[in-house]
Nucleic acid binder design. Structure first.
Lengths: 352, 352
DNA sequence: CTCCGCTTTGTTTGCGCTCACATCTGATCC
DNA sequence: GGATCAGATGTGAGCGCAAACAAAGCGGAG
């Protein structure tokens, strides 16, 4: 009975599920464990056996079952990415950089996007990742004020590309030096002779937006200049255009620092529509250095971040943390630089 | 001995791996199978037991082990995405759309990017996905002429967002109607009175690029117009700028159809640098309708595709195919439309 | 020539879960 | 009131793999 049943079960299984290690073992005349050893590169296998097994694997088209391996190892060689679900350049670049680095390290990438700015949805997405059994997590989510649930993540290493969260006992927080970016942009405009600099900020829920704003404000305060009201956009050109229209109506505005390039594009359009020239009448500085920035009608002066490099560096450290676990809590800044192009110039002469 | 050993093993396991269904079962005074039933929403569980088990699950923080479930089910509720690793709007939008749709369907998304145009690398990436045990595959890879390996994918359903590959016994090929896009753009320019239309194409390895070019050429031929040499870019503004410079130097050029908006931006810049105005001297039509298109100094006339909608529709069909397997081979086109803005106008008057 | 220690290979076990089946309870019917 | 049946719960097995342990083979030191 038992033999019978086992036999029939195995046969059914084989047709249902494909070739398993045992099939290879039988065909090669070795034990299943030896097949496992060959597959995993165990050195304690004679060359002859190794070759025979490899041959059988090739002819049978055997591919190890990942689920089984994951189950027994308790690891998946998978990294989860929590990202904001937009097509914006920043998040996209971070994502591409992450994927490349993850794959280079021999891991797979599981992606979860959240368009929502809702804490519970983000937590749910995070839970999803944990449930999938990822070995590590990358958070490329610009969540500002949220406190994400600690117990969910446990001691799984976390790489945060947008500031420190404190949700794991092994966290690596890596971020472009956003405040410096805001400072550089603002200082550049001040150095050109502008009295003050107006600011189009990103959504206040985004930590990066808030930090750029801080850099801008600090610079103005340090220089003893008037600090205009902050205008908020939502990262899109459309919002930049709307905010820009208001700014364009104010003749005292001569310099604008936009928290990203897309909004800067909208601002410039609004300026043009109001008959104000860039940079002759108004200077504009963007942020990110999107690939199009240099090819706009007026090439945009902007602050460059190395998204891909940052993601790559961060993932490398994350993998390190996964493979040699330890408690750690690192926070690092990534350098940032100004790219001067055509949209900034000294202010127009004033009648004073 | 066995009891002893089992006990110690279990204890070690518990501390290593966390809470498992058996722990919940013991705490709730039911069998492990009943816990499984509750977790999976089996209706044949009394309300009382259900509630008790749920409570224990919550207090113990039990989360089912995905690997174990995958192993026994032979399915992962995971979909793999093979995408081109760029930050371009099209691929990004397709990816976001895919992710959202996949998650809505209760699946997870495994992403593999390939920047390379190397067939073997793409095949390797595909193999990676299959090894991970994905239930279905989305190919958002603009590979033109490659014949991807059939045996790898087997009968796993495939959704192709870039044409038909014939690599699975259950394939859904969905694509924006690229030739129509090329036709609409070209016809629009012809209708405005231009004698012919010059074309900046995407890389020839991209199927979508080739199809847009076909639409363009067909329209010119049908109208009996001269068909200028195709100029090739690489989708970037930089390449558009380079090609645009050549075109700008030719005074007979009055209309340009660019295979994407980014290259269109570069073309317009080159035109401006050569002192040729858009649209007074030269008309430009782009492709994709990136979010910035409407906010450029000259709002770009372009061909709009609904990336997100297409991905969502396609994924829905893919999930359908996964859940009720059948042999199929569907090819569908997704509609496309012209968005007329400021960069197209009748040609300048000629001295004839 | 024996014993030790090394490498190579096999056997057994269990990872955590779901399925098929067995069992038990209580209600329903004539 | 006992046969019947439906629903609720438990039992045993096995998914495919790798770890621990055991056994066999082999060479060299004494």
């Amino acid at each position: 009975m038992s033999a019978n049943k086992a036999e029939s079960t195995r046969t059914a299984t084989r047709s249902d599920r494909g070739v398993v290690a045992m099939d290879v073992a039988r065909a090669a005349g070795v034990s299943q464990k030896t097949v496992s050893r060959v597959v995993n590169g165990d050195p304690h296998v004679s060359a002859a056996v190794q070759e025979r097994v490899r041959e059988v694997i090739a002819t049978l088209g055997y591919r190890p079952n990942r689920a089984a391996r994951n189950l027994v190892l308790g690891r998946t060689r998978t990294i989860g990415l929590l990202s904001v679900g937009t097509t914006d350049y920043g998040p996209s670049a971070l994502m591409v950089g992450t994927e490349v680095a993850v794959r280079r390290a021999g891991y797979s990438l599981l992606v979860v996007n959240t368009i929502e700015e809702d804490e519970s949805l983000i937590s749910a997405a995070l839970a999803d990742l944990v449930d999938q059994g990822v070995d590590g997590i990358v958070i490329n989510e610009p969540v500002g004020s949220f406190t994400l649930p600690t117990d969910l993540v446990g001691d799984r290493p976390v790489l945060s590309l947008s500031g420190h969260y404190g949700i794991s006992t092994s966290e690596i927080a890596l971020d472009a030096d956003q405040p410096s970016g805001g400072r550089i942009a603002t200082q550049h405009l001040l150095d050109l002779g502008h009295r003050t600099v107006h600011h189009v900020a990103g959504p206040s829920t985004f930590r990066s937006a808030a930090l750029r704003t801080i850099g801008w404000r600090d610079t103005l305060v340090a220089a003893g200049r008037e600090v205009p009201d902050v205008r908020y956009g939502d990262w899109t050109s459309r919002s930049g255009h709307a905010v820009g229209a208001e700014l364009a109506a104010d003749p005292t505005v001569t310099a604008i620092f936009s928290a990203n390039d897309q909004m800067g594009i909208g601002v410039m359009r609004a300026l043009a529509e109001a008959g104000r020239r860039v940079p002759e009448d108004v200077s504009v500085v963007g942020f990110d250095d999107i690939p199009e920035a240099a090819y706009l009608a007026r090439a945009l002066t902007t602050v460059r971040q190395d998204f891909v490099g940052m993601a790559g560096h961060g993932v490398a450290r994350l993998v390190e943390a996964i493979e040699t676990p330890r408690r750690q809590d690192i926070t690092e800044s990534y350098p940032i630089s100004l790219v001067e192009r055509e949209t900034t110039a000294p202010p127009p002469p004033r009648g004073i």
